[in-house]
Amino acid sequence: MSQTVDRALSILPLLAQGPADLGQVAERLGVHKSTALRLLRTLHAHGLVHRQQDQRYRLGARLFALAQEAVESLDVREIAHPHLVRLGERTGHTVHLAVREEGEVLYIDKVESRYPVRMYSRIGKPVAITVAAVAKLLLADLPEPERRSFAERLDYPAYTPRSTPDAAAFLKELATVRAQGWATDLGGHEESINCVAAPIRGADGRVVAAMSVSAPNVVIGTEELLALLPLVRRTAEAVSREYSGAPPAA
């Protein structure tokens, strides 16, 4: 680790003990005040520290937000994983779990298909946001102004003839997904791959993650895959209940 990064990170546990002024930070790090100020300004620019009116520094709200996002992502993955495994065993197809982080949707868990034809997706890899079923569910849950603003900032690659062509079409599909509570990608990213997905919701009803079943059309036809949607939705609902602490379904 570089000395600069090491020093910057050393400031965070110091401020976790309470607000500190520039001199205290410099003394704790064993550096000149100008060096401490440069590090604090960098952390401040990223929202990780905040300068109070009394010129002392404390931990910034962005740090707490990042910690909360990390905890939620880890929790939902831990809770969902056994359900994903059982869904994979029942269907035989690839099962994914995804969350939204900043401007991306990322896979955070995956259960491989039992068939020899495998998908190239990897945990930690962003999805094709304009076509992926999991992305549609996560974005459809955004408030309408935020959803519109987000959609209008995106590029719309023509992965296949079935790819979403533009923001207007994307917003229309997101409205449909929001109303029906599930999503599909039928050859939008790869012509040979189809996918059905359902949302995982927190205690407040907001979508915290999305799970999907994907398969090549050489293994299972579109209609057969769509027939799995009730099972996918029941699985997502079970994860939602466990994640939000709701009582089991009767």
Rank of each mutant, 00 (worst) to 15 (best):
G88M: 08
E89P: 01
L87V: 00
I108F: 02
A98M: 07
H96D: 04
E89Y: 05
L106F: 06
G88Q: 05
I108C: 06
L97Y: 02
R122S: 12
H93C: 05
H93P: 00
R90D: 10
G103R: 09
G88I: 03
L106R: 08
L87M: 09
V95D: 00
A98L: 07
T130P: 01
Y107K: 15
L97H: 01
I123P: 04
S113F: 12
R114P: 04
V105M: 11
I129E: 01
H93V: 06
M119P: 03
G92M: 13
L87F: 06
E102P: 00
G103I: 09
R122Q: 12
E104W: 05
A98E: 03
R90E: 13
V117D: 13
K125H: 10
R100F: 06
R118N: 05
T91D: 03
I123Q: 07
L106Q: 04
R114K: 14
A98G: 09
A98D: 02
M119I: 11
A128F: 02
E89K: 11
I129M: 08
E101H: 15
Y107C: 13
G92H: 06
P126E: 09
S113R: 03
H96T: 08
P116H: 04
K125I: 05
P126S: 15
V117A: 15
R100E: 06
H96L: 12
G92N: 10
E112G: 13
R122A: 14
T91R: 06
P126F: 05
V105Y: 02
E112T: 14
R118E: 07
V111P: 00
V99D: 00
K125W: 01
V95N: 00
R114T: 13
P116I: 07
T91L: 13
E104R: 13
R122H: 07
V127G: 05
V117P: 01
V127N: 01
E89G: 04
A128P: 00
I108W: 02
V99W: 01
P126L: 08
A98K: 02
H93E: 14
Y120K: 14
T130D: 05
L106W: 01
V95T: 02
E112Y: 08
R118V: 15
V99I: 10
G88N: 12
V127A: 07
G124M: 04
V99G: 01
L97K: 02
A128R: 02
T130K: 01
H96R: 13
T91I: 12
